[in-house]
């Protein structure tokens, strides 16, 4: 009996270790009969590979986190880290250097962009899939063509346009250029195409209008897909740097990614305040990470992983 509880503890340890390395659906294989985990070479190699990959990817983040807990730009020993310093750093970053405000701006911008993009893309996909209009395929082709023209490519005319419209330093400038999304239209279109045509026809026979059909049939049937693309859109929007940097020069309107850049201007004893920058980076990381964790399942479904 004691042996069994012991192995159970082992098993728990290995599953949690496993979960932390990112494989949530893969359970460590345990043979209860023998009370020992069934290990073979292939499993071991796979896990070693995963561990290595995750460590490599996590390393910069770990270093950033460690530096944000100290007072200097280099990390030499654990004894230099203190929670008090960390609290001070994070407090300074958020309130003294306005990262809190920037993050709020980022959040607002990202939420507007996500909702706006969804609204535009849902309507566009609805039109492309369920309506007959001339040059439909050509229109869809043009929509896809915009994938080749991301914001950085058209940033100069875009700046000119936004400036002429008097949108500088406004949420209009931050969000409106991002409202159209070929990727989202494409993904929703593919999803709508997979919904049987007879559902639409049945709605047509019943006299259910297109918007009602969208709201009560298409959207509920596409929940997973919508949640998945929303996550991608949110992170994409949250990570915008170049465009806000150009179009916003009022610091109270600035966004988090540019905020990190602004932290470079904080100079302490003749040196860039790296701990503050790292603290800023870490807090900026939190919202997209939270979104990823919360919407992990629909996101994986969107890409057909699960």
């Amino acid at each position: 009996m004691s042996r069994h509880s012991n192995t159970n503890a082992n098993a728990n340890a290995s599953t949690s270790a496993n979960a932390s390395t990112g494989g949530e659906s893969r359970r460590f294989p345990i043979d209860l009969e023998r009370g020992l985990p069934a290990l073979d070479g292939a499993t071991l190699r796979a896990h070693a590979g995963l561990l290595l990959a995750v460590s490599l990817m996590a390393l910069p983040l770990v270093i950033a986190a460690l530096i944000s807990f100290g007072t200097r730009a280099t990390f030499t020993s654990v004894s230099e880290l203190s929670l008090e310093t960390a609290a001070q750093n994070y407090h300074d970053v958020l309130f003294r250097y306005d990262m809190g405000q920037y993050m709020l701006n980022s959040l607002l911008m990202s939420v507007i962009v996500v909702i706006g993009k969804l609204a535009v893309s849902l309507l566009a996909a609805l039109a492309i899939v369920y309506y007959r209009f001339p040059f439909k395929n050509a229109v869809f082709g043009v929509v896809l063509l915009t994938l080749m023209l991301p914001v950085p490519v058209r940033i100069v005319p875009l700046f000119q346009l936004a400036a002429d419209l008097g949108w500088a330093n406004s949420f209009a400038a931050l969000t409106i250029p991002y409202l159209a999304s070929a990727t989202t239209v494409f993904l929703l279109r593919q999803h709508f195409l997979s919904i049987p045509a007879s559902l639409v026809e049945s709605a047509k026979l019943d006299g259910v209008g297109p918007l009602r059909f969208l709201a009560f049939v298409l959207i509920p049937m596409s929940k997973g897909m919508i949640a998945g693309v929303s996550v991608i859109m949110f992170i994409y929007s949250w990570n915008q740097y170049l465009w806000p940097l150009l179009i916003v020069d009022d610091q109270s309107m600035q966004v988090a990614q540019v905020g990190i850049r602004l932290l470079q201007g904080v100079v302490e004893s003749g040196d860039i305040a790296w701990p503050l920058m790292m603290a800023g980076s870490i807090v900026t990381l939190v919202p997209p990470l939270a979104v990823l964790i919360i919407f992990r399942k629909p996101l994986l479904e969107t890409f057909g992983v699960e």
Partner: peptide
Amino acid sequence: DIAMVFQNYALYPHMTAERNMTFGMRSAT
């Protein structure tokens, strides 16, 4: 003023049987 029954039933998968039967009527009549 017609009603059609499809080979693949064309039921809305996220609605209960009752809602499936009433959705069209509540929407458009």
